[in-house]
Design a protein around this nucleic acid. Structure first.
Lengths: 98, 98
DNA sequence: GCGCGGCTTGCGTACTTGCGCAAGTGATGA
DNA sequence: TCATCACTTGCGCAAGTACGCAAGCCGCGC
């Protein structure tokens, strides 16, 4: 298997960083939207209901955690999920929270 | 099915709270330890390597998120996971972080 | 009752975060 | 070239967080 359960200090550190990135409702919403396909910053800020600079910061957080990646397309920048398992993580979080 | 993908605002709020609770390496470590069975506060603080009051606070955070529950046993207090899926969430976070 | 070990709580401090707003960068079209 | 749109970055502030330390609470044994 790819992932034995060693749980070293560093792996916990990274996992905590990922959890941190997912610990905001707006970012959770962004991840869900991106689960349906690429979106631009302005689309996401409209869907989530925040200003563009704010969304840009949230996306920067998600990117720093390695959860999303960006791609320039003409004058717009389109974001996507790096790993579809992030969506699973979101759903699992909601189940546990339920 | 148990898990439709509605993702209302409140469910995202709760999920974010859970993610928030898991967004600390020490708390992640605690969850893993508790995955192996009940532990007392002093055991956990020793394993994780922090002072008892600090561990107590981390446990309070996890309890506020509904992830752990406590039980008095004589003079000690033993904590346990409320839902084993929390462990799955931890593992998934580590995989995504990998 | 009394002290003691096990936990919790309160308090102060240093640090991080989310947000709005203004300014900067970069590509597009006139 | 210049104006414009899309996005990013810098800045300041209010709010939240982790930690250590000291004090309080609570069962248990003496």
């Amino acid at each position: 298997m790819v992932t034995a359960p060693p749980s070293t200090d560093v792996s916990r550190l990274h996992a905590a960083a990922v959890a941190r990135a997912l610990s905001d409702p707006k970012r959770l919403c962004v991840v869900e939207k991106l689960g349906a396909g690429e979106r631009s910053v302005s689309e996401l800020s409209r869907d989530v209901g925040c200003q563009v600079p704010n969304m840009s910061q949230h996306l920067a957080v998600l990117r720093a955690a390695g959860l999303v990646a960006s791609r320039r397309e003409g004058s717009t920048v389109r974001y996507r999920l790096v790993d579809p398992r992030v969506l699973d993580a979101c759903r699992l979080l909601q189940q546990v929270a339920g």
